[in-house]
Design a protein around this nucleic acid. Sequence first.
RNA 1: GCCCCCGUAGCUCAGCGGAUAGAGCACCGGCCUCCGGAGCCGGGUGCGCAGGUUCGAGUCCUGCCGGGGGCACCA
Length: 570
Amino acid sequence: MSSLYETLDERFRRAFDAISPNADPVLRPSEHADFQVNGALGLAKALGASPREVAARVLDAIDLSDLARVEVAGPGFINVYTLDSALAERLRALLSDERLGVRRRDSRRVVVDYSAPNVAKEMHVGHLRSTVIGDCLARLHRFVGDEVIARNHVGDWGTPFGMLIEHLVDMGEADAVASLSVGDLDSFYRSARQKFDSDEAFRDRSRTRVVALQAGDPETRRLWRILVDQSVNYFSEVYAALGVELTASDVVGESSYNDELASVVADLDAQGLLVESEGALCVFPPGFTGRDGEPQPLIVRKSDEGFGYAATDLAALRDRVSRLGADEIYYVVGAPQSQHFQMIFAVGRLAGWLPDEVHSEHVAFGSVLGPDRKMFKSRTGDTIKLISLLADATERAREELLRRRPDQADTERETLAGDVARAAIKYADLSTDRLRDYVFDLDRMVSAEGDTGPYLQYAHARIRALFRRAGRDGALELAPDLSDSAERALGLALLGFPDAVGSTLAASQPHRLCGYLFELAQRFSSFYEECPILSASENQRESRLVLADLTARTLAVGLDLLGIAAPDQM
RNA sequence: GCCCCCGUAGCUCAGCGGAUAGAGCACCGGCCUCCGGAGCCGGGUGCGCAGGUUCGAGUCCUGCCGGGGGCACCA
């Protein structure tokens, strides 16, 4: 069944179409009614009638008697008041729908490229947003029926691997593996870097090693593979700790495209797109200019005949369309890469690798800032590891749980502390418009008062407690009474879930779903204060349990789409 | 110099061209014979500035101001 909004929109669209072909009714949620239709105001001039007359004509052309009461208001708005009976019947129908009204759509093959940490470096706050946002988008697409191919474009290639491999050799494989396997990647990298900067002989060995790596020397590749495998193992641990659904099988690192790079160049050259400039092989897509107003190149092959990340990204793009058959490709990468992706897409279009019917989008995001509004760093100026971020949040959550539930078993508390910590961090990240920078404030996100992940978890857990107390697991399948304004407001919000999911997906903006869930939780809290449930008469109790059940399930499904657990108790 | 993103309440943020711009935090009042108070109810002289488009602009366009970022071989 279509959502309430969709149903109203279809009806109004038909009525408007009869008056002015293809006119948009501009149906919106309203503070003055359940919904309002704004389209009449815009049509008035063209139709030579007053807005109120246009609105009246629309109402003549529409029959909503089964759904809503309507009236012309103000200068020409149409206020829509949904009938309680229609709301109640739709709510009843949701009870047997695990998907809470969200329909599956025709499956699209969707590549989501996200996280992308670097081999031999620990994951830090810089990877947080890509990982969390990408995971959320992947979940959303899967939920509506898309076939999602997650791609973790790990940085596993390039000149630093010369020094990393030489450092591995110096340490001895066994010691190196021991060090890396416990996740101490940063000190490994730092030691290698330090030797590279201070020791000329080491520098020479490193350069030689890079050449051997690129030439495919078996022993060198074996050593390289150790670094990659150890790192990927470590990433998997971090993803598990974060509750992110990426696995080792989603890792398709930069090196995976090595064999494609020559043919990328050849293909571009064959199409006459390649220009040699200052020794580098470049494509100059129209519309891009650089510092001196000169055309801006996308450097496909460097003057030293090595390949940069543009070549890799082009190869990946080509692969995702031609071999994976992607209908949509999302790159969850920071906003500073905006121009790079514009150029990649432009060249992809020029080369015919990215057909018009394939949607390719840079899902950009802003930075995580510290309290000083600068890039979030530790007091010593180091980047902050995701693991320690999570540990800090878990510690806070543990303290809070200990304060509120001292009787709780330690094992249960540990599990919950992790759930709450993940909720705090992820929700804080997902709940603001991703394009903006945001200030990382652990106190605010864990404190769980207000618009936070833990607040939503609490709202859910409280409802589950209600059912435990009632000795039940769900509600009877009946149409709830909505005569109390708090009941009605909650019921109306519940019916908006499909629209929230749809809008979140259409814009790749998780904060829309966050906003919806927070408002839903608030409306539930108001309802919960206003309307006694278990102590009410049997009819009223059953009716209110319907609303409670649907709220709990909507929160659980919604939180799951955000990648956040919804524990039954806290 | 050019390009991109962002400027909304003391702070952190919503706001899909529509009616009187909303939340959370903080602050001040209420609400504890109440199903979990991590809650609920009430309290607000704020859209950086100036033009323009529109019946209607926080939202679209132009120009400024302020912050961040990018602009040839690191990814």
